[in-house]
């Protein structure tokens, strides 16, 4: 019985959202606001019980990290406390006079993330791709790949005007880009259609049991 009720609520909401295809209406608006409101509340609960509780509250106040009892003032304790405090500092912007303190946390956050991603990006996106693209020019596919790669790189070269050879290369690059966008477009249509198929499958099978 419970399943029927929940499935029906899901089905009604699905249909409310699809009603937007006809035109904007109160059912769609209701569903839209419901999603925004519920997701905000849901996220709050998930964040608290999956992260703040085990990784901040438990070590700092209950002196427990997993099954490990940690000492007050131990390294684990400090490592839970300091980031927690930095996070709390973000709330200083509710008090305009001391709001600037929040920038410290923001600075550490932005700087830390930028640093973390630097070396892996260089490896994954540059070095490994360079070695993978140093292909022997023995097949048509390889020649095609190299020409496309050089053309596209030239298109995104901003230090010279696109004239002469550079202009031709850039033109080749944009052709490859557009072909790439076309392929991407096709994949995306497939993705969007899958979403519709999934919902239709839900309506026909899980809700109406027609299949």
């Amino acid at each position: 019985m419970g399943t029927i009720i929940w499935t029906t609520i899901g089905a009604v909401l699905t249909l409310s959202v699809y009603s937007f295809l006809y035109k904007d209406n109160p059912f769609y608006k209701f569903a839209e606001h419901l999603v925004v409101g519920i997701s905000a509340g849901y996220y709050l609960v998930i964040y608290y019980f999956n992260f703040i509780q085990p990784n901040v509250v438990a070590p700092v106040f209950l002196l427990r990290f997993g099954d490990e009892v940690i000492g007050f003032g131990s390294s684990t304790w400090w490592l839970a406390l300091i980031p927690g405090l930095l996070g709390l500092l973000l709330y200083t912007r509710f008090f305009p006079k001391v709001g600037w303190i929040g920038r410290w946390s923001l600075g550490i956050y932005v700087g830390g993330y930028a640093g973390l991603s630097l070396s892996p990006t260089m490896q994954a996106r540059v070095l490994n791709q360079i070695s993978a693209n140093a292909l022997p020019l023995t097949s048509v596919t390889n020649v095609f790949l190299i020409v496309g790669l050089l053309g596209t790189l030239t298109y995104f070269f901003f230090s010279m005007k696109h004239k002469g050879v550079l202009g031709v290369m850039a033109r080749v690059g944009i052709v490859f880009l557009m072909v790439g966008f076309g392929a991407s477009f096709g994949y995306t249509v497939m993705s969007r259609v899958s979403l519709l198929i999934g919902r239709v499958g839900f309506l026909l099978q899980d809700w109406l049991h027609l299949l």
Partner: peptide, 27 residues
Amino acid sequence: VSIALIAAGIIARAVGLESFVAWFQTQ
């Protein structure tokens, strides 16, 4: 620099210097 390295890699492969290309493959 990347274009130059790819070009160098293509030449290195052609003359059998596989180790030059492998050097870039970290991990």
